[in-house]
Design a binder for these strands. Sequence first.
DNA 1: AAATAAGTTTAGGCAAACCTAAAAAATATA
DNA 2: TATATTTTTTAGGTTTGCCTAAACTTATTT
Lengths: 216, 216
Amino acid sequence: MTFSEENYLKSIYSLQKDSPKGVSTTILAQYLESKPASVTEMIKKLDEKGLVLYQPYQGVLLNKNGELVALKVIRKHRLWETFLAKKLDFSWDEIHDVAEQLEHIKSDKLIKELDRFLGFPTHDPHGDPIPDEQGNVIKVEKKQVSQLVPGDTGTCVGVNDTSSSFLQFLDQQQIKLGTVIEIMHLQDFDKSMTVRIDGRELLLSQIATENIYVKF
Amino acid sequence: MTFSEENYLKSIYSLQKDSPKGVSTTILAQYLESKPASVTEMIKKLDEKGLVLYQPYQGVLLNKNGELVALKVIRKHRLWETFLAKKLDFSWDEIHDVAEQLEHIKSDKLIKELDRFLGFPTHDPHGDPIPDEQGNVIKVEKKQVSQLVPGDTGTCVGVNDTSSSFLQFLDQQQIKLGTVIEIMHLQDFDKSMTVRIDGRELLLSQIATENIYVKF
DNA sequence: AAATAAGTTTAGGCAAACCTAAAAAATATA
DNA sequence: TATATTTTTTAGGTTTGCCTAAACTTATTT
Ligand SMILES: [Mn+2]
Ligand SMILES: [Mn+2]
Ligand SMILES: [Mn+2]
Ligand SMILES: [Mn+2]
């Protein structure tokens, strides 16, 4: 399994939720910052290796094998993110890029020991669940803040956008995992929301409310 | 800097101590488990990049630039080895292979934080000094056990051979860093030595005594 | 000094993972 | 349904890092 193959499988895993009948080469290429022609080549290879289902012109989907490999890479990614945030003083907007490299280190013992060292965490610093060794993922009951209505209250359990700029914005607003958000008002024309957090009132744009997940 | 380039520089660094007028392509190829022709290609590239001094047929040496890069990779390798041994319950014969992968992760912040997390260690689990950020290495006063004579006493400060089999042998004999070794007798015909460790007497072959370093 | 042996470089290839441009297929539009 | 547009694949290149075999240089023998 090369770095590149692992990245393809991980990307297909993420994208196939929104494209359940097949991830197109264009979308995959966009996601991987490469070109459709390159994607076609690689998914043909992954198909021959028995990791994906590929039908020309119809897109690609992971099979059981491929999904397990993808989940193992995601497990490593999220364990490393947890390590960086909990043990090394990285902030949650800095961990992703380094974890993109660390997730490809090959050593079963390493990941087992890291898991133990971190106290068998169930979620990473962005609130995403960490798959277990067998590839089982805890499904989290969560809603976007944008789906709540005035009067509702939710507790932040994760984010969708994990870009530095968004995470830094959340830090500025003192929104983190566990933060309680109460919806005060919905501005009709732009879907922005006035919310209350720790007594403070603040305005969140639609983009923001769509990228914050809460449980309730 | 690719993984391969980093491995070449690291290898030249190790080999040039014993070949001060130039590391030959054959020796480098052997060390890297590749072929002389491949080595020639790569050192030409490293020469063009201004990292080594290469004269056809005369071997290769690191210049200041290349040495600094090599030392930074070695620093990362040894910090990761320390992490694996101190924090993750790896034994000293298991750490090297994983560190060979981890040493190529690119992140200044990561290595700085790791260093702090480990308490700024000066030596790795094999007794080798960890270069600082500027590439300075502490020179350790050390002798091979084979250089001692009966009556001498030394404290183990490192090993030369870091193969699993040798390190596991040392574990079996309960020889580790800090172990005090007293030379009792030198067998003339095969240069094996009878030594005393914690009251126990045991016989070490010449190969063994040449691969254990002590200070005295 | 000449011949032989050993070590090194050059030449020509290969696989992985990219790319651009052209061809082919699928989809949308008139 | 025929045509135009978009998407996807195929064909042909490039770069990196490796290989073998042949050519060349240096070192060692006779
Ligand atoms: Mn991430
Ligand atoms: Mn994450
Ligand atoms: Mn090592
Ligand atoms: Mn070491």
